[in-house]
Design a protein around this nucleic acid. Sequence first.
DNA 1: TTTAGGG
DNA 2: CCCTAAA
Length: 621
Amino acid sequence: MKQMTDPVVYKLVRVDFDGKLIPATDDELMEVEDLLEYEKSKMLSDCDAVQTVGCSSNGDHLSEKPILQGYGGLMQSEKEEVAVVKLNAGIECIEMLQKVNKEERHRFTHESPIHLSSCTDIDDQISDRCDKLPNADVTLRSRSPLQETLSMSTPSSNGKQDNQIVHSSECPNSGEKGIENRSSVSAMVADSKPNFSRLKGEINLDKLTIRELQETFRATFGRATSVKDKQWLKRRIVMGLTNSCDVSVTSFIIKDKKLVQTDKEDSCKKVDAEDLVAEAVSDCRNGSSASCGDQMEDAEVGGNLRSSFMEYDCKDDSMLELKTAKRVRKPTRRYIEELSDMEAKDYCEKLIPPAKQSAQGKTSTILVSRAGTQPNAVVTRHDSLGGSNIQVPYISRVRRCRPRKSIMSLTRFQSSGMGMTTKWASNTIGWTDSQLNKSSMDKTVEVRPVPFAELLIEEGTKEKQSSVTHIPEVCGDKEPKRVDLPGNYSDDTTVPTAKGGIRRKHHRAWTLSEVVKLVEGVSRFGAGRWSEIKRLSFASYSYRTSVDLKDKWRNLLKASCAYTPSEKGTNPRKNATIPIPAPILSKVRELAEMNSQSTKNLKASGSQSGASVSENRSGFL
DNA sequence: TTTAGGG
DNA sequence: CCCTAAA
């Protein structure tokens, strides 16, 4: 599926009045992540390709598209580092995608049937790859030279004011009034390709001239600097190479990607190159956090949004420049929860016990961020993710799910899921945006073929179906209600009981989108595969356990049986909870029937059960 | 640990 | 949702 997607994907990005780049929806963000992954793997094999994804700038206007930098310039020994740097660049995009003006999004959803490239299980991807932002080293400012370059290489279009949205190029109908900032140029910017040869071997920064330091800086971060301050440069480079802000030594020697302290005690974390990668990957995760911030924007975060950026553990005053340039969004509670959940769920098997970690010479550091603007410090800890050190917000939580057997299982399922997705995309009819809205799932858009589209069409919106026949469909994904946002419950959703167990504090009403997700999951994996559905379709819903899914499915089944036979003419307000749209219920019934059928088939003839599933689906409708 | 089913 | 038996 990734191969099918054009690697050049543009995202909805809004530029705020203060020049801040506001990302779009979660789903888009996630898609970018997908992209990042794609780019990463691609670049790992293609050393020369430095892909820079579009950035459009309209002269004085700061309307820009995310710069999605690939992971170019990889050399075997340093590829990890490169990946980091490049990823860091990509992070910017992620960040940009984090937020989008709600109204704009709404409008976007309404006015433009967006057909994003197919990308399934975005939730899973995002939740699996995202983490907190690192030290804000590689910073693409809104007017950074790199972006300037990019801007020039992309066609600019009619100017709009700030706050305008730039439509993604994957949105075929995005050409409506005033929002035509489209560009589909993938700029190859050689200048942005850091020269990492400088990073080889030992570098004694003390002996370098300012110019050399600047060069090294560029090699490290992929962007040039004009800073003349030697100390600053050295610090920056060391920070970049060691991925640590905690650099205050006066003498720097970098040897084999490690900082060799010369005149001071180890105050630096020494991380392997692979750690850097993990860190960079972890950067993406912050994206999910930001999306949470987005969702909570008028809720608890509220006006704090603008000030919700903060720096992590940057004790160095030299960071001042960076502070203004790039601020790290403070993780929301949901983010932290999810992150912790993810980390526990997905990477637990790879965790190295802290003791062992220290024994390996890795300092298990707990850093207290000293945010200038944030009174409350954020405690982070170093964890090992996939054998790498990452910094994650520290939080105690209860794991409700057993860890994934292997990270690869995710990819495996994803690819298989995507395969099915592709099939669906060509065989089924998806939502239209109006259908989406009808289903109250218009908050966000997701690129995913929706198997229930038929149901909605069957609901009398057939006239819409022509507009969406062959393109992967847009579908509401995230919970539409703020009340349902996980962040509102944060990490104290469970409370220990006297009996030693844990009990949930709140009942979380199932939202329609969750139900849809569930039904889709069932249709994909079949009823009974709850843990798989949970992992793949509800990866970002840390509060839904597989048991929950099962229970909900049971309820849905009950509801559908009580409902559908008599069709829609009956009393529409039977459900105490949210009224489940009849199409969904009938879908549930269908799936149930299919399921029982296939199991019967399994029992009887033991064959052709898998084929019957998909065939029954289409034949049924 | 996961699933199925009762409470 | 919780709990638990069974796999």
